[in-house]
């Protein structure tokens, strides 16, 4: 499970060649909204050249494409996945088909992931069917575009996107996919970022996209389990082992009854910190 994704405009070599030094779990090279229309040709050439010639250190690379036709010109073994803007069920299925055929033809050593960018009212309402698509590994909420569709302003409190956040979370979790929160755009406001990230985490998001490297550490920290959660999870696993040996089904830790869902959550927490 990832925690942080960093957007990098694909026409900006200084940012692209330094993307790998930051601690984001994934980088999103952006060919779409991060590049003005007159430069989209240059951005594509730059991205392809970058993938072919620059030796990036280990990082999950995701490309936000403009449209599905672009995929075949930029597809590359170093790419992990694609972020499809204004994603809906139809376009995602088309992208899926396109990738399947390219994978067959070009014999890559891995399959490409897709992250669906949920930024229209329809895709919010249809989030469950989007999450169901096997190739989709995550849903990313695009609150800025969504707010425009709704005719509202964005706020830190986030009431205007509460429903959308929940839909993304429930849909993603129904199929064990990543629920990725929208970026916080005030890059100089670390306290605002913290609040926004906690708001997202506390209702079930497991990751957040960001638009500036200075935001990454805050996001990673918040999406990591706390030391208390880790200690408690360890206690649970130790108690479970003991209970299993003793042939006991139910057991308690620190006075709390521990049943299956809690055991599963403890396992997830310990897996998160393995990396």
């Amino acid at each position: 499970m990832i925690r942080s994704l960093l957007f990098i405009p694909a026409n900006h070599p200084g940012m692209m060649q330094n993307a790998d030094i930051f601690n984001a779990d994934a980088v999103i090279f952006d060919l779409e909204d991060g590049v003005i229309a007159s430069e989209k040709d240059a951005a594509k050439d730059l991205l392809v050249s970058f993938l072919n010639h620059f030796h990036m250190q280990h990082k999950k690379i995701i490309i936000r494409i403009n449209n599905i036709d672009e995929v075949q010109t930029i597809i590359h073994p170093f790419i992990h996945g694609f972020l499809l803007p204004k994603a809906d069920e139809a376009s995602l299925l088309l992208l899926d088909k396109t990738l399947t055929s390219l994978e067959k033809k070009m014999k890559f050593d891995h399959l490409f992931h897709v992250i669906a960018l949920i930024e229209t009212p329809e895709s919010v309402l249809n989030a469950l069917n989007i999450a169901k698509i096997p190739r989709v590994t995550g849903l990313l909420l695009g609150a800025e575009d969504l707010a425009t569709h709704l005719g509202v302003s964005r706020t830190l409190e986030g009431r205007e996107i509460e429903f959308a956040r929940n839909m993304v979370i429930y849909a993603a979790k129904a199929y064990q996919k990543n629920a990725i929160d929208t970026p916080y755009t005030d890059v100089n406001n670390i306290n605002g970022l913290k609040q926004d990230t906690f708001n997202a985490k506390n209702i079930g998001m497991n990751a957040k996209a960001c638009i500036h490297p200075n935001q990454i550490d805050t996001i990673n920290e918040i999406f990591m389990p706390t030391q208390e959660e880790i200690d408690f999870a360890r206690k649970i696993m130790i108690a479970k082992e003991k209970a299993d040996l003793d042939g006991l089904g139910a057991f308690s830790v620190d006075g709390k009854m521990i049943d299956q869902p809690i055991i599963l959550r403890a396992k997830h927490i310990l897996e998160k910190i393995k990396d």
Partner: peptide
């Protein structure tokens, strides 16, 4: 500094 690379080095 606000430069993210300098900040990383400092951190």
């Amino acid at each position: 500094t606000r430069d993210p690379i300098q900040l990383k080095i400092a951190k």
